[in-house]
């Protein structure tokens, strides 16, 4: 075993890559939320002139991939790997976006944890010496997710109060072996945890134990306390999942300073009536690559633990009554 692995499931990067740029594209609803100012592009409508929402999602992701390279002033050709993930069957948004880009591509599926997963994998590729520039990205789209996982968009239905709203958005970051600024310093790859939740509308509850497991292992492996970080931010637990996470951590004697938050909670106003907050790959992707990364660049945040949370069910498994397995992947970003 290499010396980079510490404890049970954490990797400490020797030469952690720099996050040299980030780009975000958000949907109209996200553009009315509190983080609107942090997004690079806000779509006027959910289709953005495309004939299907699937095409819109793929186009957003492609644009995010191109723009991160553009912003960092790096020709796209010099990027070694493209990592991306999304929620649609066979990750078509990522595959189709990568078709347009034409770079070596690794498609990832970690459900809503895809952004954190892609950053962990990208950092491994760079620290391992397998490349020097990696684009890590993820996307989701409210309408594409809705029609795949739930009901047709025009079908009337009352969403439960603990339900979450899939974010329309695509975000990407460019990792580089050289540069200045924030670095990915460690990554904790999560394991799949299932606490028996069967309600697909209550994904926060399904994912909270997996996130708790990853946080506990991360802190144990590195012998850190939670207050080591300025911010511990989860991907899309929503308000219900975040409360559950804090309760579970408390039961496991993790001292909880007041530094926990969740991208799904941050992205919408309560007046937007999303119930428990945002969800989807795009949720953590645009909050991280937009709002949080800007704060890190500005020096307002120095140490972040970013934990993507993914709920690994499918419409088929849900219909067959299976419980929902979930996963959390953590990366720490330090200046």
């Amino acid at each position: 075993m290499g010396s980079k692995k510490v404890g049970n499931q954490t990797i400490v990067f020797e030469n952690g890559p720099y996050i040299i740029s980030g780009h975000t594209i958000a949907g109209p609803m996200e553009g009315q939320g509190p983080l609107a100012a942090s997004f690079d592009t806000i779509l006027k409508d959910t289709s953005d002139g495309e004939k299907s929402w699937e095409r819109t999602e793929s186009k957003m992701l492609e644009k995010a991939m191109r723009e991160v390279a553009n912003k960092a002033d790096i020709p796209l050709d010099s990027v070694d790997y493209l990592l991306a993930g999304d929620l649609l069957n066979q990750i078509i948004s990522s595959n189709f976006a990568a078709r347009q880009i034409g770079l070596p591509f690794i498609g990832l599926y970690g459900a809503c944890s895809s952004m954190a997963l892609s950053m962990a994998m990208g950092s491994m590729l760079i620290d391992g010496g397998f490349g020097s520039k990696v684009i890590c990205s993820a996307s989701s789209h409210h309408e594409t997710a809705e029609r795949q996982y739930r009901l047709p968009t025009e079908q009337g239905n009352q969403r439960p109060m603990y339900g979450q709203w899939t974010v329309t958005g695509a975000g990407g970051v460019l990792l580089s072996d050289s540069g200045t600024g924030p670095k990915v310093t460690t990554a904790t790859i999560g394991r799949v945890i299932d606490y028996g939740e069967t309600d697909v509308n209550n994904m926060g509850a399904a994912m909270a134990p997996a996130v708790a497991d990853t946080i506990i292992n991360h802190l144990n492996d590195l012998q850190r306390q939670a207050d080591y970080y300025d911010l511990i931010v989860t991907g899309d637990l929503g308000s219900v999942g975040l409360q559950l996470l804090l309760k579970v951590l408390e039961k496991n004697n993790v001292k909880i300073p007041n530094n926990f938050n969740d991208c799904g909670v941050m992205i919408y106003n309560t007046e937007q009536d999303t119930h428990a907050g945002g969800s989807g790959c795009g949720c953590s992707a645009i909050v991280f690559a937009g709002h949080l990364l800007k704060k890190v660049y500005a020096g307002n945040l120095k140490k972040i633990l970013f934990i993507g949370s993914g709920s690994l069910h499918s419409p088929t498994s849900a219909l067959q009554g299976e419980t929902i397995p979930a996963i959390g992947h953590a990366v720490s970003i330090e200046v």
């Binding site: 009901l151 009337g156 239905n157 439960p160 069967t198 309600d199 697909v200 509308n201 209550n202």
Partner: peptide, 10 residues
């Protein structure tokens, strides 16, 4: 719809 466990769709 409200009193039974979720997964009851229209």
């Amino acid at each position: 719809m409200d009193l039974t466990k979720a997964n009851i769709t229209p």
